[in-house]
Every structure is written in C-alpha cells, then in structure tokens.
Amino acid sequence: MDLSALRVEEVQNVINAMQKILECPICLELIKEPVSTKCDHIFCKFCMLKLLNQKKGPSQCPLCKNDITKRSLQESTRFSQLVEELLKIICAFQLDTGLEYANSYNFAKKENNSPEHLKDEVSIIQSMGYRNRAKRLLQSEPENPSLQETSLSVQLSNLGTVRTLRTKQRIQPQKTSVYIELGSDSSEDTVNKATYCSVGDQELLQITPQGTRDEISLDSAKKAACEFSETDVTNTEHHQPSNNDLNTTEKRAAERHPEKYQGSSVSNLHVEPCGTNTHASSLQHENSSLLLTKDRMNVEKAEFCNKSKQPGLARSQHNRWAGSKETCNDRRTPSTEKKVDLNADPLCERKEWNKQKLPCSENPRDTEDVPWITLNSSIQKVNEWFSRSDELLGSDDSHDGESESNAKVADVLDVLNEVDEYSGSSEKIDLLASDPHEALICKSERVHSKSVESNIEDKIFGKTYRKKASLPNLSHVTENLIIGAFVTEPQIIQERPLTNKLKRKRRPTSGL
C-alpha cells in the first residue's frame, strides 16, 4: 500500500509539471487552440484576439514586449497534440486509482476541453461567416432531431417561395387574352364579311383624315369586289339584299356627314349593287376616265402658280386654248370622233363635250346612286353658264364675245376644280409618270385663266386698248415650251401688254 501511494504521488507531480508547461500565460489554463508568435511564445487563440482587439494597430507580447499583429500569429499543431495527450492521461489516472485529481477545478476545466467541445467553440470564435457556423452547429449536434426538422422546413419554405415567384413570372405573360375566330364554310359568310367591311370603312371615314380616306375606301372596294366574284351565280339572291343594306348604310352616312363622305364616293362606285361583274367593270372604266381629267386639272394648277410671274407667256397662250382643249377632250372620251376645226366657235365645242359626257352618266342604276348626284349638279351648273353665254354673245361685239367665252371657260374650270378634291395624291404621281406629254398640253388651259381676268378688268373701264407692237421672242419661247399647242394670231399678242400698262397708270386715278 505504501509503495502504491508513493507511485501515485509521483504520477500526480509529473502531471502537474506537464500542466504548468502547457498553461497559457494569460488565462493560466491549458492552452486552447495554441497560437505561436514571432517571438516563439505560445498563447491561446481566444486570449490573443481579445488582446489585439483592445487597441488599434499592433499590440505588445505580454512576455517579451514585442509587437504582435493578427497576421504574425501562427497555429502550432504540436502543442495541440500534447494537450490532447495530457487530458487522456489524466482521465486514465482517475480510472485506475479511483481518486480524484488534486486540482479539481483545473481538471474539471480540462475535462470540459474535450475535442468535441473544442470544435464547437472554434466554430463560434472564428469569423467564418453565418453559413459556415450553421453547418458546423448542425454537424456538432446530430442528436437534436427537432433542430434538423426546423432547419429543413425553413430551407424548403425558402425554396418554395423562390419557385413560386419564378412560376408566377412565367405564367403572367401567358394570361394575355387570345381571340380565335371559328369560321364556317357556308355561303352566307361572304355576304356577312362584305357588310362588315362596308360598315367598318364608314366608321374609318368618319375618323380618319382626308388623305387616308381614299386609300381605305379603295382597299375595301377591292375586297368586296373579290368576294362578289368568288361566289357562284346561284347565290345572287343572297347578294341582292346585302347590297341593298350597303346602299342604305352609305346613304345614311352621306346624310350625316356629306363633306366627309364625298371624298370616298368616287372610289367606292364599283361596290354599288350589281347584278353581274360586267356592270362593275364598266363603272370602273368610267371612274378611271374621270380621275384622269381631274388629275390633269391639278397639274394645271401647279403650272399656273409657276407661270404667274410671267405675264407675257400667259398672254401669248390665249389663242392656243381651243387647240389644246380639243386634244384633251379627244383623250378624255374613249369614243372615236373627228377633231373640230380651228376656226369653230369654242362654245360649240363645249356643248358637244357636254353631250358626250351626259350619255356616260345616263345609266338607270347610276342615277339612283348618291355619288353621281355631285356630277349631275356640276353638269347642270355648266349648262347654266353656257345659256348665259349665249345671251352675252348677242349683245357684245366679236372681240368682247371672245373674252366672255374665255371667262366662261374659266368658270367651267372652277367647277371642275371642285372635283379635284376627290382624287388622291398617289394617283397624281402615277398620271405624271405615265403621261407626261398630256400633262404639258393640259398646262396651257390653266395658264389661260390669267388672260381671262385681264379681259374682265378691261370691260370694267369700258374700253380695250391696242398697240401695234411685235414680240417675236415671246412667241418662239412659248412654242418651244408647249409641244401640242397651235400657232397664235400676232394681233392679239400685241394687244395684251398695252392693256396691263394702261391699267397700272389709271388705277390711282380711279381711286381718287
């Protein structure tokens, strides 16, 4: 017993010596996670971090007073192994002897410093981030199933929210409404489509400006004509009531908005009720001829604005009016007729031209339509002016008669200019590109209106002035400009410049 007691005391002394060697000089306990400095002193990692955080910048070693920084600290694995072995020896000594260790306080702390507990403390002390800490805590505590279930439920809930957000973003663009038309193969669909197009076009005519009305009406008319041609002859009974509906809707729209509806009346003529396609083609032919005449008058307007600064050229074209007008009339009417003589009366030419125009518009179905009313009214106005011209010709002399006839021709041009508003800008460009020769010939008609105004002003003063002067240069210039014009009389060319000069002198006297 005595020997055993001596041996136990010796073992205890050895353990105490080893414990003092492996103590931390700051906390005076076994080193936890030993860290060595540049001066080869060993301290606990937790104690050194606490010391360095007390001051900004480098701190001093507690043993040798040298500078220490966080970067200079290094882990010493050898001392950590020695500490672990010492703890194992102490545990074995207690089991063999059955005696508690003399320094129970220190031993209890040593026992608490088992490797499992050290790992837990290291995970908390090290600044490795929240995710690494959570992982280490889960690994160190596998015995708690409640914690695992809560963490898994949190992760699953987070994943569910992310997935639901993604699915919502994908589903939202798919919620856009999609309209699908289910059509049938019955023959009544074509008639319904035609009526739908006509009503939609009328609404567009009321909303859209004048520049786009003609294009819309032309497209709708083409669509309706194609649909009529596709149907068989057996379905004509269905077409006639639908066309009557079209007429009623167009008349109502014309009564409500007459000014807006006139812009599309000329282009919509071939959508009118037709028994066969031949009647629609004839109407299209007549409309094309009318559009040609209207576009020519538009060309004359532009030329008149350009040549208004040259009064000499405008005056020299006075007698070329009849010849150029004959050529335009021959090209406007498709019928083959002989040219009228140069010395014939211009009023007779106008009456013949009106007689040619009237039969074209005397179809029984055309008179029933609303768009032809505008053309009939313009023709009636022309006839009224010609009836007035006959009365004026009986009273005035030959020279005054010529000037009045020219004035009436200008009035006719004004009437025809009203129809110019109905034609589109695209048709003007096509006419100029296809028929430049006709445009040059028809330019002379509009330029002549300037000389007509001068004659009217001469009649106000009650006299006409003449001068025997020749202007050969002007006649040559005008002959080169206009290709299809005829030779003019030299006496009238000489008379016109004198009248304008005298007018300039006598205007201030009349004002006084």
Rank of each mutant, 00 (worst) to 15 (best):
Ser140Gly: 11
Asp185Ser: 10
Arg7Cys: 12
Lys175Cys: 15
Ile15His: 00
Gln169Ala: 07
Glu111Ala: 10
Asp96Gly: 01
Val14Asp: 01
Lys20Ala: 02
Gly57Trp: 15
Thr190Gly: 08
Val35Pro: 00
Val178Ser: 12
Glu149Gly: 07
Lys56Gly: 14
Glu116Ile: 12
Gly57Ala: 11
Lys65Ser: 02
Ser140Lys: 12
Gln172Thr: 07
Thr167Gln: 11
Arg166Thr: 07
Thr77Pro: 12
Gln148Asn: 14
Ser123Lys: 05
Thr176Phe: 14
Ser177Leu: 05
Leu118Ser: 09
Ala5Gly: 12
Lys65Tyr: 00
Glu10Arg: 14
Leu152Ser: 13
Val35Ala: 15
Val11Arg: 00
Glu111Cys: 02
Asp120Met: 14
Leu165Ile: 12
Leu159Pro: 03
Gln19Asn: 12
Asn103Cys: 11
Ala17Cys: 11
Ala92Leu: 01
Leu118Phe: 12
Lys45Arg: 08
Lys65Phe: 15
Ile42Val: 15
Ile124Phe: 03
Pro34Asp: 03
Glu84Leu: 12
Ser72Arg: 04
Pro115Ile: 08
Arg131Lys: 14
Asp67Gly: 13
Met48Ser: 05
Glu143Ala: 08
Ser104Met: 01
Asn113Ser: 07
Tyr179Asp: 09
Gln148Ile: 04
Gln54Cys: 12
Gln126Phe: 08
Arg136Asp: 13
Gln174His: 12
Glu141Asp: 03
Cys39Gly: 00
Ile26Gln: 01
Ile31Trp: 02
Glu33Leu: 11
Asn113Asp: 11
Val178Glu: 11
Gln155Thr: 08
Asp189Trp: 01
Thr97Leu: 05
Pro142Ala: 03
Gln81Arg: 14
Tyr130Cys: 02
Ser123Arg: 06
Ile124Thr: 09
Ile90Ala: 03
Glu121Pro: 09
Ala5Asn: 11
His117Pro: 01
Asp2His: 03
Ile68Pro: 02
Glu141Gly: 08
Ala17Gly: 12
Gln174Ala: 08
Arg170Gly: 12
Pro115Gln: 08
Asn112Trp: 07
Asn158Leu: 02
Pro142Val: 08
Arg131Glu: 11
Ser146Lys: 06
Leu152His: 06
Glu100Gln: 02
Ser177Pro: 06
Asp2Cys: 06
Tyr101Asp: 07
Asn144Ser: 06
Arg136Ser: 14
Val35Asn: 02
Tyr130Pro: 07
Glu29Ala: 14
Ser177Cys: 00
Arg133Ser: 11
Pro115Glu: 14
Ser140Asn: 08
Leu6Met: 15
Arg256Gly: 03
Gln174Ile: 10
Glu111Lys: 09
Ser127Asp: 13
Val178Asp: 05
Ser76Asn: 15
Leu182Phe: 12
Glu116Tyr: 05
Ile90Gly: 05
Asp189Gly: 06
Ser76Arg: 06
Gln126Cys: 12
Ser157Met: 06
Met18Glu: 00
Gln74Cys: 12
Arg163Tyr: 06
Lys32Asp: 00
Ile89Cys: 02
Tyr101Leu: 08
Asp189Arg: 04
Tyr179Gln: 12
Leu99Asn: 06
Asn112Cys: 04
Ala17Gln: 01
Thr97Arg: 03
Glu85Val: 03
Glu188Cys: 06
Gly183Leu: 08
Ser127Asn: 01
Asn113Thr: 07
Arg170Phe: 11
Asp2Gly: 09
Cys27Pro: 00
Asn113Cys: 05
Val178Tyr: 08
Lys110Glu: 13
Thr69Asp: 02
Cys39Lys: 00
Glu141Thr: 06
Val11Pro: 01
Glu111Gly: 08
Val11Glu: 00
Gln19Ile: 13
Lys168Ile: 10
Leu82Arg: 00
Leu138Ala: 11
Leu49Ile: 07
Val83Gly: 08
Arg7Ala: 10
Gln148Ser: 08
Met48Gly: 08
Asn144Ala: 04
Pro115Ala: 03
Lys45Ser: 04
Lys168Leu: 11
Ile68Val: 13
Arg71Pro: 15
Val8Ala: 12
Leu28Pro: 01
His41Leu: 00
Ser153Asp: 07
Ser72Val: 06
Ala102Trp: 05
Val122Trp: 01
Asp189Ser: 13
Thr161His: 15
Ser127Trp: 15
Lys135Asn: 05
Thr176His: 03
Leu28Cys: 14
Ala92Gln: 00
Lys135His: 05
Gln81Val: 06
Tyr179Trp: 06
Leu156Ser: 10
Asn132Pro: 09
Met48Pro: 01
Gln148Glu: 06
Ala92Asp: 03
Tyr130Ile: 04
Asn112Ser: 02
Gln169Phe: 02
Lys110Ser: 07
Pro142Ile: 03
Gly98Ile: 00
Tyr105Pro: 13
Thr77Leu: 09
